[in-house]
Design a protein around this nucleic acid. Structure first.
Lengths: 367, 367
DNA sequence: GTTCACGCTGAATCCGCCC
DNA sequence: GGGGCGGATTCAGCGTGAA
């Protein structure tokens, strides 16, 4: 364990996982001593019954005792308390990241603003592989929200603009990040082979956060350390960390994990960058965007068939409804059909393939 | 202007733009009369000074008087007031959408929860063409957040799952939507050629909202109507709207805009329907109608189990009697089972799913 | 070694009608 | 209004094991 002396007499316990309630522990540390705080607090999910997948398997829900709050009021009180303790710990030019979902993030954001933090961005983590909505009752919950805020208005926070631009193939980093959830070898297991923590975050997420908003040698505090993703990535990237975690089982897993981490070689950084296929464009987007009107007629390439566009991006032809591909296949009596190259529309008397419109959308997406 | 009578004496001013303060106007309308509210309230941007692009051109900022609030407290008070008035207007199974940015969305989300609304999703509008961050001091602000909430927990909100899935080429719609901002011909200009409204929303966004969470004929209220995107898309899609807007200049632009909109054909507005909407066919009817004989054997889809049909439309298998669903669930040791897709019968040596017979009956019912 | 089929799982506020 | 029960509902990625 490394320690450093600060202005006061108290030493800062660097690269250590402290046990106990995060508010008490934070209050025991010296003020204005931390460069960045990354916090992944309980989400207060308020789950009710059980959920099964369509194949009848059961979803392993997050129903741990630490995520139980009896009301929004109680959750707010908890949130305001830890945010206040965190505020005291931050250096004047320090900053904080907090991650959450719609269950809690609005409470957290309001509390941040009320506590004097100054929001810099909200950043959306778009999951490339989220869990679907199994009952078809809502949108797939495909993202989580992170709030990035400085200690106060006018704080000179760290922002490594060029490094982030480089990470993003030369284009300014946006407020929406597409990253996969934590699975496979990265997902830590307990001795029974079950997941060690129900909500382990991917290292790629922390990588981007730390590259973007800290410098080597900075001190990063994580008051809800869990299995220590923040500590592991901080160590890789040559930053110092302080973790706080109440549950002994998580602390043990984190200790072991971080002990195995080696500080990064430069080259390993580049790996995750590329791998980009042409983005999929749903036909429905042509309708939503007014490129084709509901009710408009499409003509088959061979001019033998026509069909009408509906508001939801399906087609209706003679005795058949469905996607551009399904209707094309049916009309041609073929096992399958690429609707993009099969259908045309008319503009100014000319017949134009609908694929032209898809190419327009893709061109915009590359910008 | 169309009006309808509701339970009370007050008429509902459909397809009209009402002038005045939205809270007062909402309080003058009959309670429980609206199916959906779409609200794009002031964002409370708190901009300071002028912003210039790298080429020294000046950014036309949103600095209108209606976006000025002296503190979070004042903004909260305003937010709670209009959300309360909106809550009263909603039918029990109604829902609301509110759009905002990190400046205000956390205040709005907390206020929604405190007012008894029940959040269903937060949806991220990911802009394909956002304005860059010219100073390189933060992430490109590339998204806005929408909150979708029902009037209360347990409300039977409208969700056109199948239509949204169709819009997305057969894959469940996610909580992140990629759509371009409103530019080009769609962007309304005033007589000087300047943009008529600083924050006009794209019609594609409203298209998806209205297709997904309303049905034709539903009443949609927009208390911050601006230049009337909600009204224009509602009219196209065969929905009724009520707009409220304080500024006369915006009302005039909106009136003119909506008068030019034409409703799509009825056929184009019909949308992919859910199987849940299909009439229920009791399994017993297959036996009554002689499509299956009492005593005949059914086989499970996986060929591992069989059961015998009884005259009352129940099945009897190894040690188990009951409905097609109950017997299937028991044999598979599953919490539930859809008997219609689980069981097959034999005809001319071929194995045929019993759902084929249900489809025959439904086809007859449609005639 | 390679490919393919299949199984498993992930921060989830996840049903609705009829009696 | 509460209980019973019919029956509708999933995407991407990783790991395993057979071919």
């Amino acid at each position: 364990m490394t320690t450093t002396k600060t202005k006061g007499a108290t030493a800062l316990p660097l690269n250590t996982i402290l046990s106990g309630d995060c508010i008490e522990v934070m209050n025991s540390l010296p003020e204005a001593s931390v460069d960045l705080i990354f916090a992944d607090p309980p989400y207060n999910l308020q789950l009710k019954g059980q959920l099964h997948r369509p194949d009848n398997s059961q979803v392993d829900a997050v129903d741990d005792h630490w995520d139980q709050f009896s009301s929004f009021g109680v959750y707010d009180q908890f949130t305001r308390a830890w945010l206040k303790a965190a505020h005291r710990l931050l250096k004047p030019n320090g900053a904080i990241w907090v991650i959450g979902s719609y269950h809690n993030i609005f409470r957290v954001g309001s509390a941040l603003q009320d506590a004097g933090y100054w929001i810099l961005n909200d950043v959306v983590w778009r999951k490339s592989n989220p869990m679907p909505n199994f009952r078809g009752k809502r949108f797939t919950n495909a993202h989580e929200t992170m709030i990035w805020a400085s200690k106060s208005e006018g704080g000179k926070y760290t922002f490594n603009y060029e490094a982030l631009k480089a990470l993003n193939e030369g284009i300014q980093m946006r407020s929406d990040w597409v990253l996969p959830i934590c699975t496979g070898h990265e997902r830590l297991k307990d001795e029974n082979g079950d997941k060690a923590h129900p909500t382990q975050k991917p290292e790629s997420l922390l990588h981007r956060v730390l590259i973007g908003s800290t410098n080597p040698g900075d001190v990063i505090l994580d008051p809800f350390f869990g299995t220590g993703t923040t500590g592991a990535v901080a160590k890789m990237l040559g930053r110092e960390f302080i973790g706080i975690e109440r549950e002994e089982s998580y602390r043990k897993v984190a200790e072991k994990r971080i002990s195995k981490v080696r500080k990064f070689d430069r080259e390993a950084l580049e790996v995750s960058a590329s791998k980009r296929a042409e983005p999929r464009v749903p036909f429905g987007q042509l309708v939503e965007r007014g490129m084709l009107r509901p009710g408009e007629e499409l003509y088959s390439m061979n001019q033998r068939h026509k069909a009408k566009v509906r508001a939801d991006g399906t087609l209706v032809g003679d005795n058949v409804k469905g996607s551009i591909h399904q209707v094309g296949a049916h009309l041609e009596n073929a096992p399958s059909c690429n609707g993009w190259t099969y259908w045309c529309f008319k503009r100014d008397g000319k017949t134009v393939p609908i694929d032209i419109l898809r190419q327009q959308i893709r061109a915009e997406m590359h910008n």
